[in-house]
C-alpha cells in the first residue's frame, strides 16, 4: 500500500488555501455522491485550478477542456482521496497539473503549441496576459520565497512545472547536463518548500 506520508490533513499545508470552505469535508461529501458539495468544491477551487492550467497550457479553449477533464477526474476519484497523502488542494492541483502537462505534450506532438518558452520572460508574464488575475494576500510571501532560489534553480523549476517540459528537455533548453537539470529542479523545489514551510 502506498502512503504519501508527510501528512498535511488540512488546508494549512498549502499556505494559499487558508481561506474559504473546508475542502476536505466538501471532498468527503462529494465522494458520497453529493453533487451540491461538488459544486461548492468547484466554486472554491475552479479559479485556482484553471489559473494553473492556463499557465501551463496557454491556449484558452484547450485550457477549459483540461480544467473540465481535471474536475471530472476529481469527481470520479474523490472516493479514493486519502488525506494522509496530502491536502485536498494539493491533491486537486496535482491532478490538474498532470492533465495540463499531458495536454501540452500531446499537443506538442502535433505541433499545435508554441513551444518556445523564454526563460527570461517568464517573470510575471501572466500579469499582462491573463484577465481577472487576483492578487492573493500572500503573494509577497511566495515572491520572497521565489527570490531565495538561484536564477538557475528558478529557471529550471519554472520550465519544468509551468513549461510542462521533462527534465531532459529542460536540460536541452538550458544547455546544461542531464543530471544538472534534475538536481536544479529538485533543489529549487526543496528550497521553496523549506522557505514556505510547506508540509505536504
Amino acid at each position: 500500500m502506498v502512503i504519501m506520508a508527510a501528512v498535511g490533513s488540512g488546508d494549512e499545508s498549502l499556505p494559499t488555501a487558508a481561506v474559504g470552505p473546508d475542502l476536505g469535508s466538501l471532498l468527503t461529501r462529494s465522494a458520497r455522491g453529493d453533487e451540491g458539495a461538488f459544486a461548492e468544491l468547484y466554486d472554491a477551487t475552479a479559479a485556482r485550478l484553471h489559473g494553473l492550467v492556463v499557465r501551463v497550457v496557454r491556449d484558452r479553449a484547450q485550457s477549459e477542456e483540461v480544467t473540465q477533464e481535471a474536475f471530472l477526474d476529481i469527481w470520479t476519484h474523490c472516493t479514493r482521496f486519502d488525506p494522509a497523502k496530502g491536502s485536498p488542494l494539493s491533491w486537486m492541483l496535482t491532478i490538474a497539473h498532470r492533465k495540463a502537462v499531458d495536454r501540452v505534450r500531446s499537443a506538442e506532438a502535433s505541433k499545435a503549441r508554441e513551444v518556445t518558452y523564454e526563460v527570461t520572460t517568464t517573470e510575471r508574464e501572466h500579469d499582462s496576459t491573463l484577465e481577472k488575475v487576483e492578487v492573493r494576500l500572500d503573494q509577497q510571501r511566495v515572491r520572497r520565497a521565489l527570490a531565495t532560489l538561484t536564477d538557475t534553480q528558478r529557471g529550471a523549476v519554472e520550465l519544468a512545472y509551468l513549461g510542462g517540459h521533462t527534465h531532459t528537455e529542460v536540460a536541452a533548453l538550458l544547455g546544461i547536463p542531464l543530471g544538472t537539470a534534475k538536481t536544479r529542479i529538485r533543489d529549487g523545489l526543496i528550497r521553496l518548500r523549506d522557505t514556505l514551510e510547506v508540509t505536504a
Binding site: T16, G51, R55, E134, E158, Y161, L162
Partner: peptide, 14 residues
C-alpha cells in the same frame, strides 16, 4: 515538493 510547486501559481487565479 508537489505542495511547494503549487505555490508557484498561488498568485494566479483565473
Amino acid at each position: 515538493l508537489r505542495a511547494a510547486a503549487a505555490t508557484l501559481t498561488s498568485d494566479v487565479e483565473l
